[in-house]
């Protein structure tokens, strides 16, 4: 145990970011939502945006994100986050607005909203969590579920003859002119976490500069509905998910 003098002299090198509240997160063990939250929070603090940021909270496991982020928050209907974010941004242009959406919210019910928001070049940022499954509703197939992946609604594995192929959101958005920054990252080791933070920062910088729409897809874990231990889930991202969803900066942004 360090004594009091040691603590008084100590330099703080790691602490809770100011953009996160003290509320304990409800995410499952091994889930990377917490890492993603922290990276976004660090970026908001480093860019000095906390005072004017609005998070648009969507439907899925991150539905309580308004409790965790220390910023103004608006809860959106399932899939409608980018439309709600647009309404906020257009009527309050000085606000920094971001949605935090899972693959069910963004790639299934909300695909139209995200595409048209990108197409209009709205200066908002989307943090897109792709864990290849509907987590909160108990592990059903998502548009991003891998071929052969077992979910509670693909009990024999996803069959492309029945359910088609995985939805490639970044590849879909990459052709849209209104996109200012677009990248796919993951958070499975220190290097990929650092890369993810760099991309998140660029995405928010693009918004600060009014450059247009920015989105970062984060390939994320769901150990519970992948039926894996946390470390097995990390390995599954490396071996399976990244095969389907290669990490890439699709649209680069230079401030």
């Amino acid at each position: 145990m360090p004594d009091a003098q040691d603590l008084a002299d100590a330099e703080v090198v790691y602490r809770r970011p100011a953009a996160l509240t003290e509320v304990q997160m409800r995410y499952c063990p091994g889930c990377t939502h917490g890492t993603a939250h922290r990276l976004v929070a660090e970026v908001l603090e480093e860019l000095d945006l906390i005072d004017r940021t609005v998070i648009v909270v969507t439907v899925g496991c991150s539905v309580y994100a308004d409790k965790y982020f220390n910023v103004d928050a608006v809860q959106a209907a399932h899939g409608r986050g980018p439309a709600v974010a647009t309404g906020i941004k257009r009527s309050s242009p000085e606000s920094i607005v971001f949605t935090y959406q899972g693959d069910g919210d963004l790639a299934a019910i909300g695909l139209s909203e995200v595409i048209h928001t990108a197409q209009r070049g709205e200066s908002i940022t989307v943090i897109f969590i792709n864990n290849a499954v509907f987590g909160m509703t108990r592990g059903q197939m998502a548009p991003t579920t891998l071929v052969g992946q077992k979910t509670t609604t693909t009990p024999r594995g996803r069959d492309p003859q029945i359910a088609g192929m995985p939805m490639m959101v970044c590849e879909l958005l990459a052709s849209i002119a209104g996109v200012a920054y677009l990248a796919r990252e993951t958070m499975i080791d220190p290097k990929t976490v650092r890369n993810a933070k760099r991309s998140i920062k660029k995405a928010f910088q693009a918004q600060v500069d009014g450059a247009g729409f920015s989105l970062v897809e984060l390939i994320s874990t769901c150990p519970v509905w992948w039926y894996k231990r946390p470390l097995e889930a990390i390995a599954w991202i490396r071996e399976e998910m990244l095969e389907q969803y290669p990490l890439q900066v699709f649209v680069e942004y230079e401030a």
Binding site: V56, V74, A76, A77, R80, A83, V84, A85, T86, G87, I88, K89, R90, S91, S92, S95, S112, E113, H116, R120
Partner: peptide, 21 residues
Amino acid sequence: VYLQAESELASINLVYGAAAT
């Protein structure tokens, strides 16, 4: 600001966002 939405679903959610401000 006038904005033509891609659907009435989007329209009312754009309204929701602006109303929140």
